[in-house]
Amino acid sequence: MEIRRNLRAYPTLLRIGIAEAVAYRAELIVWMLTTTLPLVSMVLWRAVAAEGPIGPERFSAGDFTAYFLLALLVRLLTSSWVLWEMNREIRTGIMSQRLLRPVHPLVAYSAENLAATPLRALLVLPVSLLLLYLYGRSEITKDPLLVGAFVLSLPGAWALTFLSMVLCGCLAFYIESSLGIFHLWYTTYVLCSGYLVPLSLLPGPVRALAEVLPFRYMLDFPVRLLLGLPGLQGSAAHAAVLSHLVVEYAYVAGLLIAVALLWRAGLRRYAAFGA
C-alpha cells in the first residue's frame, strides 16, 4: 500500500525534480565544476608518471589520463548531494514539513537526486566523451562484456553513493551541527573510492581498508571495468566481473537495510527532541 503510493508518485517527483534542476542550473554548474577536479588530478599524476610508469600496476601517463577522465564521467553520472540536504533540513527543522507529506522523505530525496542526472549528463557527456576519445581511446576496453558490466554497475554505484550519504545523514538526528559528518563521508569517499588516486597506489593498510569498504564500487570498479580490468586477462577477468557485480549489489541491499533501521531510529529521536 505504502510502497504503491510512493511508486505512483515517483514519476511526478522526477518531473518536478527535473524542473527544479533547470531552475537551479547555476548551482548545478558550480557543483559540476567541483566535480571536474579529476581533470586537475589527471594533470598532476601525469607529471608524477612523466618519466615512466609507476605503482604496482605500472600506470603510465596515458593510463592516468584515461583513469581520471573515466572517474570524472562516473562521478558526474552517479553523484548525489543528499547528505547536505538532509543535514540542513534536519538542523533547520524543514524535515518536519517533509515528514508531513504522504511520500517517504527518502523516496523524495532519491527522486530529486536522480532527476538532476539528465541535465548533468546533457552538459557533461559531450565534453567528457570527446576528451576520452581524444586522449584515452587506446586504454579503453573493447570487450563488449566489460562495457555491458560497466553499464550494469552504474545504477549500483549511484545507489551506493546515495545510501551511504543517507546513512551518514542519519547521524544528524543524533549530533548537533554536523558539518563534520559531510567531511567524514567525503574524506572516506575521496580516499577509498579511487577518486584521489587509483586504489592500487594506496599504501598497504589504507588499501586493505578501501578494498573492504563499499566505496570502491562507487567509482574505482566502474572505471576499472572500462579500463579492461588492468592486471586480469580473459576468463579470469570475466569471473572477477561477475563476483564484483554480486558484491556490489549485495552492498546495495545491505546499505538499504542499514538505512531503513537507522532512519527509523533517528526519526524516533527527532520526534522526541523536536526541531
Binding site: V48, I54, L201, P203
Partner: peptide, 16 residues
C-alpha cells in the same frame, strides 16, 4: 600528506 607520500613512494619504487 598521503597523496604526496604516495607519489614519492611510487616514483622511488619505479627508480625515479
Amino acid at each position: 600528506v598521503l597523496p604526496l607520500w604516495i607519489a614519492y613512494q611510487a616514483r622511488a619504487a619505479a627508480g625515479l
